[in-house]
Simulated scan of single mutants.
Amino acid sequence: MPARRPARTALTAVLVALLSATAAACGDRGGLRAAGPTQTAVSPAKLWPDLRPASSPAYPYAVSTRVVVKGITVPGGDIHKVDPVAVVEAEIKAEPDDYGSKGAYHATVDRLKDCRAGGDKARCPLLKPYYRDLTGDGRDDLTLGFRLYPTNQTGVRVYTVEKHRLVQVLADNDAILGVELAGRSLIERSPADISGYEYRTTWVWDPGQRAMVFSRDEYLHTGDGRKPTKPTKPTKPTRSASPAPSTSAAPSSSLSDTSSASTP
């Protein structure tokens, strides 16, 4: 990865450019000026045309999740009446390899007890639930987040209701910097292996799979950080999937913004 110039250097360059433009404008009497010759358009060069195409992905990755949640009823088909704590408890029961005494997220089980009445809310791993229509059927869906102790990961889940059944349509575990809802898209921000960069994964509803699938995985420069002493390759593989349907644009809303989502 190319080394980045410090912000101070970049800022200085911008200021010099602005001052130069201002000075030039002061001596300009108006009129049209030539911008120079137009560069000839060049088509992309296709490299290695004889290369044998890959027949399978380099990394196994589940592009979508769709599971009917057992043991959870949806009174009147209203997802607002579903108990979020019970939803997480149902996942723990269904995934003993992950949440059992030897599982990666075993400490989540005891902490979840503090989400009930009389428990220590500061220890409760469940985050505030959010409600928004992500599937486009005109009804709210449920977005849950909960910490996966003892790791630094957070579980992000999306549920919808079909024929009075609760259906999980997104399940992702990652080290999370933030989560946003934008229109009918869910965007996760995760730390990268180099400071000043982060991963952003966008999930959208796919009517064909009837699940949330990721439509974009980005590795973005977000600010100044340390310069690597040698080229560093991201440890998180680039993920690709079939093009997902476009969603209507809408202002993005962070899941930490209580004004952008309804709660029961």
Rank of each mutant, 00 (worst) to 15 (best):
V85M: 02
L15P: 05
P53T: 01
M212V: 05
D83I: 04
G119P: 07
L186W: 07
A45W: 03
V204D: 13
L144G: 05
Q39N: 10
A175P: 13
V109A: 08
I176G: 09
D83F: 01
A90F: 09
S215T: 11
S242I: 06
G76L: 02
L186S: 01
S20E: 12
P191W: 11
P53D: 03
G118C: 00
A41F: 07
A171G: 14
P6A: 11
S101G: 12
G178E: 15
E180A: 11
A7K: 07
A94R: 08
V68P: 09
G119H: 04
L170T: 03
P84S: 03
L148H: 01
A192I: 06
K121D: 03
K113A: 11
S185C: 07
G31L: 07
P57R: 05
G71Y: 01
G118F: 04
E218I: 06
A250H: 11
K121N: 04
V74L: 06
H106K: 11
T135Y: 08
D172E: 15
P6I: 09
G76V: 06
W203P: 00
I79Y: 03
A7G: 01
D83L: 08
V42S: 14
A94T: 05
G31N: 05
A107V: 11
G76F: 00
P264I: 09
T222E: 13
Y105W: 15
R147V: 12
Y61N: 08
Q39A: 15
A171N: 15
E180T: 10
L142K: 00
D110F: 09
V68I: 00
R123T: 10
M1I: 10
T229I: 13
L177Q: 06
R139Y: 02
D141H: 00
G145M: 11
A13H: 13
K227C: 12
P2A: 13
E188V: 00
D97N: 12
W205I: 04
T229C: 13
T202V: 05
R132N: 03
R184H: 10
F214H: 12
K227L: 15
R200A: 02
S259Y: 04
G71N: 01
T238M: 00
P49W: 09
Y99W: 13
D217N: 04
Y61D: 08
G36N: 05
P84I: 06
P60Y: 08
S43L: 11
A104C: 00
R8L: 02
L134N: 01
R111G: 01
R29N: 07
A90C: 08
T135E: 10
K81C: 10
A23E: 05
T263G: 15
L126D: 09
E218N: 11
P251E: 09
A7V: 02
A104M: 03
L170C: 04
P75T: 14
S101P: 14
P228N: 12
K128V: 02
G225H: 14
R165M: 00
G77K: 01
P245K: 03
A261S: 12
K81N: 10
I194D: 13
R111V: 04
G145Y: 01
